[in-house]
Amino acid sequence: MAVSTDRPAAAPARGDQRAARTLATRFLGYATLVFFGLVFLYPFVIQIASSFKTEPDAAANPLSPFPDPLSLAGFERIFAGTNFPLWLGNSLLVTVLVTLGRVFFDSLAGYALARLRFAGRGGLFAAVIAVMAVPGVVLLIPKFLVLNQLGIYNSYAGLVVPLLADAAGVFIMKQFFESIPVSVEEAARIDGASIFRTFWSVVLPMAKPALITLTILSFQGSWNEFPHSLVSVQDPDLFTLPRGLADLVSGSLGSGTQYPLKLGAALLATIPVAIIFVVFQRYFVRDANDGADKG
């Protein structure tokens, strides 16, 4: 980093010296922020710019944030020359179904684990905690085996059903339900409401912040999900966006590197999550800190 850290050598008075030091610290702070801001954001700038460049321009001026000339050829070929619209449709379908499933099933289980007293609850919760530690990548072959055995390999069911519940979501919901006062639902129960009715019309409405968090996490998780689609489907008609994108990059596209096309497709795949991130940022932040406490 080319930032000067020199402090003014001789300040006349103590106060001046401290002010100068504060100024220097502040300058250094901003310089660091801006430098890392560029490191973290400029790749996206390059991505956006390059997807609007012509292929020779992208190769000749990889750092330039301005396409010259501006070209939509990459995007035209994304829609005309690849299965992008199909992947988009599949991704949307999978994401919506998985998100709905996770929000519903995880909150049901989370509520039961937090509030209902039933035999085996402690053991079940321990199991949920244990399951959270199982790393996804070691499950690639196992998942393929079970999907094959159940006869849903290479189908929408294979793509969606295994993702319909997740242990981390159950954990988040359980923690939240434990934090809301029990008195309201007790009143509902005493008034004769059934357990499900109490859960559905009394407890769930109070759980809105946790439900939003879970919705966003599920959306982001299933939209970006790659390894599962790799082992659950083979038919190009069932590819989701990440799978199609990976195929696009590793497969042969004919001549040239086609970077504008590839970057454009990656950009389109990133936009939905980017919008959600900007709008619901604080819920993402909360997730990261849940992670911090999960242990």
Binding site: F36, G37, F40, L41, P43, F44, I46, Q47, Q220, W223, N224, F226, L241, P242, L245, A246, V249, K262, L263, A265, A266, L267, A269, T270, V273, A274, F277, F284, V285, A288
Partner: peptide
Amino acid sequence: FYFPSVTSSVAISVV
């Protein structure tokens, strides 16, 4: 700084 963490690993790998 946090934004790259939420994007698709495949899309970022392409970049």
